[in-house]
Amino acid sequence: MRDDGRNENELRKVRVEQDYIKYPEGSILFEMGDTKVICNATVEEKIPGWLKGQEKGWITAEYSMLPRATDVRTRREATQGKIGGRTQEIQRLIGRSLRPVVDLKALGERTIWIDCDVIQADGGTRTAAITGGFIALVKALQSLVEKGILKNFPILDYVAAVSIGKVGENILLDLAYSEDCEADVDLNLVMTGSGKFIEIQGTAEGYPFNREELDEILMLGEEGINKLIEIQKSILGSIV
Rank of each mutant, 00 (worst) to 15 (best):
G168S: 12
I135D: 10
S143C: 01
I130R: 11
E213V: 09
T87S: 15
K139P: 11
A140G: 04
L187W: 06
D122N: 14
L141I: 05
L189C: 03
E179K: 05
I112R: 00
I149G: 02
I114H: 06
T127G: 10
I200P: 07
I200F: 09
G195W: 05
A136Q: 00
G81F: 10
Y158P: 04
Q120E: 14
G168F: 11
A204S: 15
L107D: 09
I112A: 12
T125L: 13
E146M: 00
L214K: 06
G85S: 07
R99H: 01
A176S: 14
I83T: 08
L93C: 01
D180A: 04
G124P: 10
V190Y: 13
K139R: 15
L141G: 09
T87E: 03
A160F: 09
A121K: 11
R96T: 00
Y177R: 14
A136R: 01
G165W: 10
V102W: 05
T127L: 12
F197N: 12
L175V: 01
L98F: 06
I149E: 15
D117V: 00
D117K: 04
I114L: 15
K151G: 06
N152P: 02
G84M: 12
E89K: 11
P100Y: 05
F134C: 09
R99S: 04
I155T: 12
T192W: 08
A128I: 07
A129R: 02
V185C: 01
G165I: 09
L156A: 05
I94M: 06
G123F: 03
R110A: 11
D184P: 07
L172C: 11
D174E: 09
L187C: 14
A106G: 07
R96N: 05
T125R: 09
S143T: 13
A183E: 06
E109R: 00
E199M: 04
T192E: 10
G124F: 04
D186R: 11
L214R: 05
G168E: 11
T87P: 02
N152E: 15
I90V: 14
G133D: 10
G193C: 02
Q142C: 07
G132V: 03
Y177S: 14
F153M: 07
G123S: 04
S163C: 08
N210Q: 01
Q91L: 00
S143G: 04
F197L: 15
I90C: 06
C181I: 14
I171N: 10
A128Q: 05
F197I: 15
G81M: 12
G206R: 12
E182H: 13
A121E: 13
I114C: 12
R211V: 15
D117I: 03
T203W: 03
I119T: 12
D157Q: 04
D186Y: 14
R110K: 15
G132E: 06
R99D: 02
G133T: 12
L104R: 05
S163Y: 03
D115H: 02
P208C: 01
L93R: 02
A140F: 00
N188R: 03
E109Q: 08
E89N: 05
D115Q: 13
A204P: 05
I112F: 10
E199G: 03
G195H: 01
I83K: 13
A121G: 14
G206V: 09
G148K: 06
G84A: 04
I112S: 07
I90Q: 05
N170Y: 08
G123K: 08
G148V: 02
Y177H: 14
K105P: 04
T192F: 05
V185H: 07
T203D: 07
A128G: 07
C116V: 13
I164E: 00
G133L: 12
N188E: 10
Q120N: 14
